[in-house]
Amino acid sequence: MKGVVAVVNPHAKRSIALRGLISSVWRNKQLIWQMTKREVVGRYKGSAMGLAWSFFNPVVMLAVYTYVFSEIFKTRWVGVGAEDSKTQFAVILFVGMIVQGLFAEVFNKSAGLIVSNVNYVKKVVFPLEILSIIALGASLFHAFISFIVLVVAFFAFNGFVHWTAILMPVVIFPLMILILGFSWFLASLGVFARDIGQFTAIVTTILTFLSPVFYPVSAVPEGFRPFMMANPLTFIIEQSREVLIWGHLPDWSGLALYVLAATAFAWAGFAWFQKTRKGFADVL
């Protein structure tokens, strides 16, 4: 495969510089693209509908959210008029689910990235650091399909779409960086501590209910709001709703600070991965 080097010592010291990471991504861009496509298509391999499931699933979930929360629970979102709240609650909630789903999918998968690809560690020399990027790319594909479903639904319910929706990639970008940091940490830890996979499932469940997915931040008692804002998903979910639902510009200074913090964390995760990867072959 393109991007695979012929002979390298698996125990050799690896560079932890961000420049080395960027160089690796660029050098293996074709490999990343091909393996991401394989990851996406492989999920639906053998099914009659194939990739159509990636569109069908979010449509069904949005329909379920609309019915359950508007007709059964009679839920209303604070700050939304009663006449619009039935449909608006569904799309507001769906925004949170898209962001949470993107994070949770990669977070839960990361602990098994190296363990499930032992051949790349033992039998061939492979740029292992790109496995996290491939996992993120596949998750981004499904998040993009959900985003399209959301935009179509918003237009169907309201008759318009805010132009600020085009800023959604800018809002999601800092979260992508943060996700990679988590992924590199967990991919490495998953080799040495197999229980990490069970732990990540618990963490994502907790984060789902401690994030403003099903409720607005304003509904949280003021004493607990600092803890809510410390959740890395909270700011991104809130900013996603600003550009998609309310038609407001994002908090540029907040996004800039998030990018800086996420980059520092991602570098730490990458450095940890590079420092520990020389032990992967011995453990596996």
Score class of each variant (00 low, 15 high):
Leu102Glu: 07
Ser240Asn: 01
Pro212Arg: 05
Ser47Phe: 11
Arg14Asp: 00
Glu242Arg: 14
Trp184Leu: 00
Trp246Ile: 03
Trp33Tyr: 11
Asp195Gln: 10
Leu21Cys: 00
Trp272Met: 08
Ile16Lys: 05
Val171Lys: 03
Met61Cys: 00
Val161Trp: 10
Ile134Gly: 08
Trp163Gln: 14
Leu140Trp: 03
Glu83Phe: 11
Leu113Asn: 05
Pro169Asp: 11
Leu136His: 04
Val91Thr: 15
Leu255Cys: 05
Phe155Asp: 08
Leu140Thr: 03
Gly50Cys: 07
Met168Lys: 00
Asn28His: 07
Lys2Ile: 09
Leu93Cys: 08
Glu222Gln: 12
His162Phe: 13
Trp184Val: 00
Ala165Ser: 12
Met1Asp: 07
Ile16Ser: 10
Phe270Cys: 01
Lys13Tyr: 03
Phe89Ser: 11
Arg38Gln: 15
Gly81Thr: 11
Leu93Phe: 08
Lys74Trp: 00
Asn28Val: 00
Thr164Tyr: 03
Ile172Val: 15
Leu128Thr: 10
Leu284Ala: 04
Ser188Lys: 07
Leu21Pro: 01
Ile236Val: 15
Gln34Val: 11
Leu249Cys: 00
Ser47Glu: 08
Ile134Tyr: 06
Phe103Tyr: 15
Phe141Lys: 02
Gly20Met: 02
Ala262Ile: 10
Leu128Ala: 03
Ile72Val: 15
Ile172Arg: 04
Phe185Cys: 07
Met168Cys: 02
Ala17Tyr: 02
Ala165Met: 15
Lys86Gln: 07
Val191Cys: 12
Leu93Gln: 09
Val217Phe: 00
Ala82Leu: 12
Leu62Ala: 09
Lys13Ile: 14
Tyr67Met: 09
Lys37Arg: 12
Gln100Lys: 06
Ser139Gln: 07
Pro226Asp: 06
Ala12Phe: 01
Ala219Phe: 13
Leu189His: 02
Val95Trp: 06
Gly279Thr: 00
Met229Ser: 05
Val60Glu: 00
Phe224Lys: 05
Leu257Arg: 10
Gln100Phe: 15
Ser139Asp: 06
Gly20Asp: 15
Val80Arg: 02
Met97Thr: 13
Lys74Asn: 14
Ala135Phe: 02
Val4Ala: 08
Phe199Met: 12
Phe214Asp: 02
Ala187Pro: 12
Arg241Val: 02
Phe227Ala: 14
Ser146Val: 02
Val60Phe: 13
Glu83Thr: 10
Ser183Val: 06
Asp195Pro: 12
Ser218Leu: 12
Ser139Pro: 13
Thr164Glu: 14
Trp272Ile: 07
Ala48Met: 15
Ala143Trp: 05
Ile166Gly: 09
Leu128Asp: 01
Leu51Gly: 09
Phe55Arg: 01
Ala48Asn: 04
Phe73Val: 11
Lys275Ile: 09
Lys13Ser: 10
Phe154Gly: 04
Leu233His: 05
Pro169Asn: 11
Leu178Pro: 04
Ala187Trp: 07
Gln34Arg: 12
Trp163Pro: 15
Val170Thr: 10
Gly3Leu: 03
Val59Trp: 09
Val151Cys: 12
Phe56Ser: 09
Ile133Phe: 15
Leu102Lys: 04
Asn119Ser: 13
Ser183Lys: 08
Trp184Gln: 00
Val40Gly: 11
Ala82Ser: 13
Val8Trp: 04
Ala230His: 08
Ile98Pro: 14
Gln239Ser: 01
Asn9Gly: 06
Leu175Asp: 09
Asp251Gln: 01
Lys275Ala: 11
Phe227Tyr: 15
